[in-house]
C-alpha cells in the first residue's frame, strides 16, 4: 500500500467560542486510494474528535458530505486524493450559514422543497386494484435524469444567483419540480408553475450553468430550468391566444397524460 502525507486545511467554527471561522491545518498520513472524506475521518478518529461534519454512505448517494474542496463544491466521498496536491483546503458549502465547522444550515432548502410540490399531483387517484400506470420507456426517460437528485446542495453552493439572493428557489428544488412536471403520471404542472414561474422562481436564473457543472449525479438542473422557462413562455402566449390557446394547451397535456 502506498502512503502519502497531506496537509488538510479545514475551516473551523465553533459558535460557543469563535466570533468568526478560522483555518486549522492537520497533517494526515493517507493511503493513495483515499478520498478527502477518509482523510477527514482520520482527523476525527486520531487527531481531533471535536471536528464536526456530516457523512454516511461513502458511495455518493446519500448526499450528506458536500463540502468546498479547494474552492469547488464536491462530495468529499468522491473527491479522490490522487486528483489533488499535497495541500487541500476544505470549507463548508458556500452560500449556506455555518452551523459549526463543516456543517451548514439547510433549513432554507428544506422549507423550499415542499413549496414546489415534489410529488405526483392528480385530479383523480387511480385505485391500487387497477394496477400500475403504464409508462413507456421514453416516458420514463423524459424525467429520469431529474429524479436522480440526491439533495447534496452542491448546486446551491455553486449558484451565484442563490449566493446573491437567497430567496431564489434554486437549482435542485426547481429540477425536482421539473421532474414531476415531466412525469406522464402527473397532472400538477399548473399548480407548480404558480410557484416556479413566480418571483424567485425560474426567472431568477440567469443560466450561469454552474449548478450542472458541479452536479455529481448529472441531473443538469440548468437544463431543467431552461426547459421550464420555455414551457412557461409558451403558456404565457397560449393564455393570450384565448380559446385557441386553451385548446392547444389541453391537447398538449392530454397527450402527455394518456394512459
Amino acid at each position: 500500500m502506498s502512503e502519502r502525507t497531506i496537509e488538510l486545511e479545514i475551516l473551523r467554527y465553533n459558535p460557543a467560542t469563535d466570533e468568526a471561522p478560522w483555518y486549522q491545518t492537520y497533517t494526515v498520513p493517507c493511503q493513495e486510494e483515499w478520498v478527502v472524506l477518509d482523510a477527514i475521518n482520520y482527523v476525527k478518529d486520531h487527531l481531533d474528535s471535536s471536528l464536526s461534519y456530516r457523512w454516511s454512505c461513502h458511495m455518493a448517494v446519500c448526499g450528506s458530505c458536500g463540502m468546498m474542496i479547494n474552492g469547488e463544491p464536491m462530495l468529499s466521498c468522491k473527491a479522490f486524493l490522487r486528483d489533488f496536491g499535497r495541500k487541500i483546503r476544505v470549507e463548508p458549502l458556500s452560500h449556506f450559514p455555518i452551523e459549526r465547522d463543516l456543517v451548514v444550515v439547510l433549513d432554507d432548502f428544506m422549507e423550499k422543497l415542499p413549496r414546489v410540490k415534489p410529488y405526483i399531483v392528480r385530479d383523480q387517484e387511480k385505485p391500487i386494484e387497477e394496477g400500475e400506470y403504464k409508462q413507456k420507456p421514453f416516458e420514463l426517460y423524459e424525467f429520469k435524469q431529474y429524479s436522480m437528485c440526491i439533495n447534496c446542495m452542491l448546486c446551491y453552493a455553486a449558484c451565484p444567483q442563490y449566493g446573491l439572493n437567497s430567496e431564489f428557489i434554486g437549482p435542485a428544488a426547481l429540477a425536482l419540480a421539473h421532474r414531476y412536471n415531466k412525469d406522464s403520471r402527473d397532472e400538477g404542472r399548473d399548480q407548480r408553475e404558480e410557484i416556479t414561474a413566480a418571483h424567485d422562481g425560474i426567472w431568477e436564473c440567469s443560466f450561469v450553468g454552474a449548478c450542472s457543472e458541479v452536479c455529481p449525479k448529472a441531473v443538469d438542473p440548468a437544463g431543467a430550468i431552461q426547459q421550464m422557462k420555455l414551457a412557461s413562455t409558451m403558456d404565457w402566449y397560449l393564455e393570450r391566444l384565448g380559446g385557441v390557446g386553451a385548446r392547444v394547451k389541453r391537447s398538449l397535456s392530454s397527450r402527455r397524460t394518456s394512459k
Partner: peptide, 13 residues
C-alpha cells in the same frame, strides 16, 4: 446556536 453567514461580495462576486 449562532450560525455564521459568510457575506457574498455584491460587486466582485
Amino acid at each position: 446556536r449562532k450560525p455564521f453567514v459568510r457575506p457574498v461580495p455584491a460587486t466582485t462576486w
